[in-house]
Simulated scan of single mutants.
Amino acid sequence: MQDTAPSETPAADPKRYALVKVDGSYLRLDRVAGTIAFCKPANGVWRCMPSPDAEEAYLNEIDRLRQENAALREEVSALRAGADNGDSDSVRPGHPSAEAPRSNTRPGPELSQKDEEQLDEMLSFTEQAMRRFFGLMRDLQRETGQ
């Protein structure tokens, strides 16, 4: 088992890699390819794991989002064209534009003064019952030592 640091200079090109010690492991920079790898011992053998290239990942994500955006724009255009032509097949069921508009014109129920008082009385009773119940549960926990 070899537990020494990775070689700083490969046989092919002694200036290709640069190693920087970081928290008991090494950061390896490939000067030719421009890649970075983290090297650390695992089971007595040094292993180098390539570091993900953040810029490449961002560019790939931007490209993916551009393609998705273009596809969505095409879908919106097709839906608008179908709606303008009165094509009922262009609007998918379950799509917000397929549903009938909802209106909140129906007034909510109005409570009389007596109803308000009864509601307050019921809420007060419920609150007292819940407090009593949780108090009993606390007492039971204390008695059983939990």
Rank of each mutant, 00 (worst) to 15 (best):
L27A: 04
L27S: 08
R28M: 10
L29K: 13
L29G: 01
R31M: 14
V32F: 11
V32G: 02
V32Q: 13
V32P: 00
V32M: 12
V32H: 14
G34T: 08
G34Y: 06
T35M: 04
I36M: 10
I36K: 14
A37Y: 02
A37D: 15
F38V: 06
F38L: 11
F38P: 00
F38K: 09
K40H: 13
K40W: 04
K40G: 07
P41C: 03
P41E: 10
P41M: 15
P41K: 12
P41R: 13
A42M: 09
A42N: 13
A42H: 06
A42L: 15
N43T: 03
N43Q: 10
N43G: 08
G44P: 03
G44V: 06
G44H: 07
V45T: 09
V45G: 08
W46C: 11
W46G: 03
W46H: 07
W46L: 07
R47I: 07
C48R: 00
C48E: 11
M49R: 11
M49H: 13
M49Q: 11
M49A: 10
P50T: 08
P50H: 09
S51P: 00
P52A: 14
P52H: 09
P52L: 10
D53T: 01
D53N: 15
D53K: 07
D53E: 14
A54T: 12
A54V: 12
A54S: 09
A54F: 06
E55K: 04
E55M: 12
E55H: 06
E55L: 12
E56T: 06
E56C: 03
E56K: 06
E56D: 05
A57Q: 12
A57N: 07
Y58K: 09
Y58T: 14
L59M: 07
L59K: 02
L59G: 00
N60T: 12
N60D: 12
E61Q: 12
